[in-house]
Computed example of a mutant assay.
Amino acid sequence: MSTRARILEVAARLVAESPDGEISTRAVCEAAQVGAPALYRHFGDKEGLLSAVVDHGFDAYLATKRERGDTTDPVEDLRNGWDSHVDFALRNPNLYRLMNSPAMRTPPGSAIEAHRILTHDLERAAAQGKLRVAPELAAQMIMSATTGVALMLVSRPVTFPDVGMSARVRDAVHAAVFTADVSPGAPVETAVPSAAATLGALLRRSHGSGLSTAESALMTEWLDRVSNAER
């Protein structure tokens, strides 16, 4: 095992075993039997080490998402994605709190990848006419709600003892984000935003729209404003 891998493995174990998730670089160096210069050479500083720990721990969770092929029902994929996200947090509370700590000034790569996967599924839903808002806004709504629920469950178990609460919040958020198939007789306040979100998603995926790059960007901005308008 390389020195970097040994340091990372030890740091991940100490984070998991810590009562509050806090670790010191000194403790990591002692447990890994390396000097501080070796740790800083491989990770830059403590934040770099902790970011690597998060990516290391989150990698197995993301692997299931990377390997999962797209189904024909992106909404079901997103429901399962919410549930697996919360389940991961409950099984790895210290790691999850660390991942979402304000002290992490630079988001770990795993967090960025998770957001990208979520947005991809939402773009698929939008292309099928199933979104009320633009994919990026939907991703922000879902990710903030999922993270909030997961953090409350792992950080305030006495106040939030019911894990089933996650499904209730999931369904409430999804009801605000997704729409049933819009029929020709649907109310304008429902039909227009959904149609705008659908057209915006299709335009992003199209390479032959007949619009210039600037025109396509402007059209996408307009469609996002229509789909995201408060109603």
Results as ranks from 00 to 15, higher is better:
A5M: 08
L8W: 00
L8A: 02
L14A: 04
S18N: 05
D20W: 02
E22G: 00
R26P: 00
R26C: 00
A27I: 09
A27T: 08
Q33L: 11
Y40E: 05
R41V: 04
F43M: 03
K46M: 05
K46D: 01
K46A: 13
A52P: 07
V53L: 00
A63T: 13
T64R: 14
E67S: 12
T72F: 06
P74T: 10
W82Y: 15
L90C: 11
N92E: 12
N94V: 04
M99I: 02
M99T: 13
S101I: 07
M104E: 03
G109V: 10
S110E: 01
I112D: 04
R116K: 14
E123R: 14
E123Q: 14
R124D: 10
L131A: 08
R132E: 07
A134K: 11
A150Y: 06
L151C: 03
M152W: 04
R156A: 12
R156N: 10
D162R: 13
G164F: 00
H174C: 13
S183I: 07
G185Y: 04
G185S: 13
P187N: 05
T190A: 12
G200D: 07
R205T: 11
H207N: 15
L211A: 02
L211P: 05
L218T: 14
W222F: 11
D224K: 05
N228V: 05
E230I: 13
E230F: 03
